[in-house]
Design a protein around this nucleic acid. Sequence first.
DNA 1: TAATGTGAATCGTTTCACAGCG
DNA 2: CGCTGTGAAACGATTCACATTA
Lengths: 210, 210
Amino acid sequence: MLPQPSATRLARLTVILTQYCSDSRRKVSSKTLSKLSGYSATTIRKDISHLGNPGNNGAGYDASQLLTFIRKHLNLTEPVKAGIAGIGRLGSSLINYPGFSGQGIEIIAGFDSSINKIEQSKSTIPLFPSHEIENETSRQKLELGIIAVPKEEAQKTADRMIAGGIRGILNFSPATLEVPEKVTVRNLYVAEELIALATQIRCNKIRQNK
Amino acid sequence: MLPQPSATRLARLTVILTQYCSDSRRKVSSKTLSKLSGYSATTIRKDISHLGNPGNNGAGYDASQLLTFIRKHLNLTEPVKAGIAGIGRLGSSLINYPGFSGQGIEIIAGFDSSINKIEQSKSTIPLFPSHEIENETSRQKLELGIIAVPKEEAQKTADRMIAGGIRGILNFSPATLEVPEKVTVRNLYVAEELIALATQIRCNKIRQNK
DNA sequence: TAATGTGAATCGTTTCACAGCG
DNA sequence: CGCTGTGAAACGATTCACATTA
């Protein structure tokens, strides 16, 4: 049973290893990965060992083997199909972010309430009006939904994605989403992050566990 | 000594309570806050009690008193002055996000390497070229820096902010930042979030602790 | 010797159970 | 009687210490 913090760190390691391998470096030790990630070498070894034994005890890891090993055990061999709701500045920045495809993340549909305003011809992915979310989610078998709409529309957007069969949601809106058990939500609350940061630097009462 | 997860949840509660109070509701119980936040009522009470006793044992909380109480104990009575580097789509969306000011977060300076490209007249905040980061950070006494630049520029941007005296960094770039002890970094790794989500929904091996 | 892999110990957080208050 | 506040228990994650292997 893999602890959730491990899963998050392993996700980070796949990104780091992708870069590392593309620089055509072969060997990598937990110590090197520690340098590149900020996690302790012990934590990294423990995280990896949760997945089983990648081989190569004693020497370091073969970088690309390790990457394949982690990807395989995290069920990341198939690309992830995602849709995004809200084609404002934030949504556009995500659609155009070049770092996803190398990680097997494919944003293949965009949704917005006022689709007319958008220069659809400029978009690199097909765009649909919001009332098509359910249809397209199920038709294209989207696994993940990204919510980049204003707070007021967030719950309704989530409901439509869920009705279409989405399994996971990454929520950039400040809303607290109510979803059924089977759907997983991760929230990126930017204001809260800034507030927490401000507290951390102003207030010496907070446990600083590096 | 306040646990870091508590601090993050309390930050979230201040945002929720701000909304709640603006709807001119007076009383709030830990149970209600649980509904609004997704955290358990016990966790919320424990988080609050870490700060001391807000009064009103037995009955629920007075919402605005509670908000003031939390803000005060998290050192959030003074506004937070922040600067942002990278005025692309992501950076612009943050500059124009209306949800910060009500939370005491003021983004008062923007930085970009190619400042000419930007329609400075359109911007609602002053924009500066990147080589001014150190100067402006120290001159305007910025506490927080937001990094929304490409990966390659992230470390240099952080270094400039730190040289200018920044204490906390919110990093949207996929880089791992190296910073001195006294500087706190929080990373928002979007690709990693999506990967972790994909793993979570595809893989039943992950501990799902709601 | 330099590295991994891992049971055991430690540490931190959450949850429980309940005393006490309005 | 519903709600807060809180020690104590339970739980989960990280770190330690070290056996093991190239």
